[in-house]
Design a protein around this nucleic acid. Structure first.
Lengths: 204, 204
DNA sequence: CGATGTTTTGTAACGACGTTACGGTACTAT
DNA sequence: ATAGTACCGTAACGTCGTTACAAAACATCG
């Protein structure tokens, strides 16, 4: 004697997340309000709270959607016989993803929305994406392209550099697109040269 | 027939900026409201608007105060005969400044307050601090410690890495303080080795 | 089919925010 | 003393996140 069956909310969920993403991209973080998202999707604000609990819940889903996109971009990177080239391709994929979803990137790796802070569960969902990087580094070490080192440590260094460059580029601190590409290439060259096995080490 | 003399507002300005900084550090970006800042300083919200125009004006001053602190930290780094050591010391000063003023750092290099975006004038005030880095790099190149390169380009690479590492550490992604220090040292070692003149280049 | 009880949802409200209009207060120059 | 201007606090407007409440929708049971 009740109404136990919930309707399928998957569609509305996706629609709201999508709407929120477009709103964020179009008008920036200050436009991302539950009211406006609901209004754009043609539902009441209550619906948002029913589905996501609060604004942080909505932002959390956007956050996860962003990581899904990044994971897809990583999976699209082929695994060739050249581990160094694969690693560089991962870096390019990371950069391209950041540039084509700047606001989502800020959401994922900046701190623009004070309502939401990633928790333990979210961290677990993110880890596999990071592991792809670690694994690419491990292949470089195994192939003898890199000097022996802990892949996790090297991945962290590369991640630091990559995130820093993304951050600078999104702030337009890398100049034009061509200049930026040059900076990326140079920075990666430098870092990879530092990681490589070089004769000087064995000479001393 | 008037009241032309303006009182000296310097004190109240500093007090408000300071109060806002402490509020930001204590309770995060969401607590940074003109109302609360004014209340803490014991004045009316109108005073804030009188002195800073709007909230963005206040945030702008906080932003500049943060850069002043960073500039002071940079100036405290001595200029020894070892340009490489000086460069590393600059990196450590940057890191220490970020860690001791995390919210201010977010304000300066993240994007937590959507109300304020640095303009041209602010960029000019910041440049000298960045130039200190460029100059330190130039000394390394001149001394023959680094392979010949444009100091601006190399500085950008180092800035990218440094900012990326700060960003990761502020997100607690670098582990304990000791682990983080090790990561910093390793990352800088790697990058600096990549920038150094090494025998392998001339051997080929 | 209709009654029932739960789920869903829109309306309206609360408190806090940024911002500003307004009116009173304080003070200087005459 | 008075007039006129700078200053400042109060209160308001619109918007925000969030929630209480009541109406509506609907699956189950008689």
């Amino acid at each position: 004697m009740a109404r136990p069956r919930n309707r399928d909310y998957g569609e509305l969920r996706r629609e709201l997340i999508d709407t929120a993403g477009r709103l964020l991209a179009a008008e920036g973080p200050s436009a991302l309000s539950t009211r406006r998202v609901a209004q754009r999707a043609g539902v009441s604000t209550t619906a948002v709270y029913k589905l996501f609990g609060d604004k942080a819940g909505l932002v959390r889903e956007m956050f996860l959607a962003g990581f899904e996109r990044l994971a897809e971009a990583f999976e699209a990177v082929p695994r060739t016989g050249d581990p160094l080239a694969d690693l560089a391709a991962l870096g390019r994929a990371y950069r391209a993803n950041a540039l084509s979803n700047p606001h989502l990137y800020e959401l994922m790796f900046g701190r623009p929305v004070p309502e939401f802070e990633p928790d333990e569960e979210v961290a677990d969902l993110i880890r596999p994406t990071y592991d792809a990087l670690v694994e690419a580094v491990a292949r470089c070490v195994e192939a003898g392209v890199f000097a022996p080192a802990e892949p996790e440590d090297v991945a962290l260094r590369l991640n630091g550099l990559t995130h820093g460059l993304c951050s600078l580029e999104l702030r337009a601190a890398l100049g034009s697109a061509e200049e930026a590409s040059r900076h990326w290439d140079d920075a990666f060259d430098t870092m990879l040269r530092g990681l490589a096995v070089h004769r000087a080490d064995s000479d001393r």
